Amino acid sequence: MKLALVSDALDPTSGWGRYAGELARELIAAGIDLRLISPRLLARLADLRDYPDHAEIPSFQHGRRHPLRVLQRTLPPLLRALRGVDVIHCMVEPYAPGVALAAGRRPYLVSLVGTYSIPSGRPWMERWLLRWALRRARGLPAISGYTRRRVESDAGVRQTSVVPLAVRAEDFRRTDPPPREPGLVVSVGECKPRKGFDLALEAFARLNSEGIARRYVIVGPASPSSPYVNRLRTRIRELGLDRFVTLTGVVSEDELVDWYYRARVVTMPYRLAGSDFDGFGLVLLEANACGTPVVSARDSGAEEPVVHDENGLLVPPNDVSALTAALRTVLTDPGCWQALAAGGRRRADAMTWRRSAQQLLDVYAQSLGRRLDARV
Rank of each mutant, 00 (worst) to 15 (best):
L42Y: 09
T332D: 07
A273V: 01
L109G: 01
A103G: 14
L241F: 14
L165Y: 11
L36F: 00
M351G: 01
E152D: 00
D242C: 05
G156L: 04
T324G: 05
L361M: 09
L282A: 13
A287N: 05
E255I: 08
L68H: 14
F60Y: 15
L82G: 12
R346G: 09
G84F: 11
L165Q: 11
L199G: 03
I118V: 11
E56D: 15
G279D: 15
R271I: 04
L232T: 10
R345G: 04
D171S: 03
R122I: 15
I57C: 12
T234A: 09
L129F: 11
S296Y: 05
F244V: 10
L112D: 00
A341H: 07
R40S: 08
L201P: 03
D319N: 15
D254Y: 02
R80C: 00
F277C: 03
R235H: 11
A357N: 10
P141A: 06
L5P: 01
E22G: 04
V110R: 01
T329D: 10
D258F: 04
D362K: 01
Q366N: 06
V186A: 00
D276H: 12
G211L: 06
L140D: 07
E152F: 00
Y116H: 13
S223W: 07
R149D: 09
Y364L: 06
A302T: 09
V219P: 15
V185L: 14
R149K: 10
P119T: 02
S275I: 04
